[in-house]
Amino acid sequence: MRFPTDLKLVVAAAIVALVGCTTKPPPATEAPPAGPPPGAGETGPVTESNIIPGSAEDLRVNVGDTVHFEYDRYQLRDEDRNVLQRQAGWLQKYPQVRVTVEGHCDERGTREYNLALGARRANAVKEYLVSLGVSSGRVDTISYGKERPVCTQSSEDCWAQNRRGVTTVTSGAASS
């Protein structure tokens, strides 16, 4: 893993360019920081201009990286299919990008069951992306069970946010 110096410079430049908006670039395999609440602003057009097309940030902010699930379910909701369709389109536009779909659960399940449930959710997202033409080799899955909530209160609202599938860029994204 050795990058040419000029590439590093590009990266640095990109980071500087990003400073204005949402601070840190998301770590590759980490869940992104608590994003916009479900349903709202998944395609926030506000900061579009600052975001490099094809970047992880582009996916997260302009395409929408998160879908949500009902309690103890892993079936996709209709409104979330739009998000995934955009993801599929984006992935076809940037064919070098590989992604990992994270499956997450709320705290209302035992630890191991939630690992299994998270795997189901991640897989449900993956299967839909694949059905839309994304090569299955480009999509990995990982389950975090209830280990990585984005919202920590014990409330229905929080649980709804935590039951999610998040598509994160593993490699191949522009400038990150």
């Binding site: 892993y74 191991e112 690992l115 299994a116 795997a119 189901r120 959710r121 991640a122 897989n123 449900a124 993956k126 299967e127 899955t141 389950s143």
Partner: peptide, 9 residues
């Protein structure tokens, strides 16, 4: 132990 494959455990 449990092995997951294609979302199934």
């Amino acid at each position: 132990m449990t092995l997951e494959k294609g979302g199934n455990s």
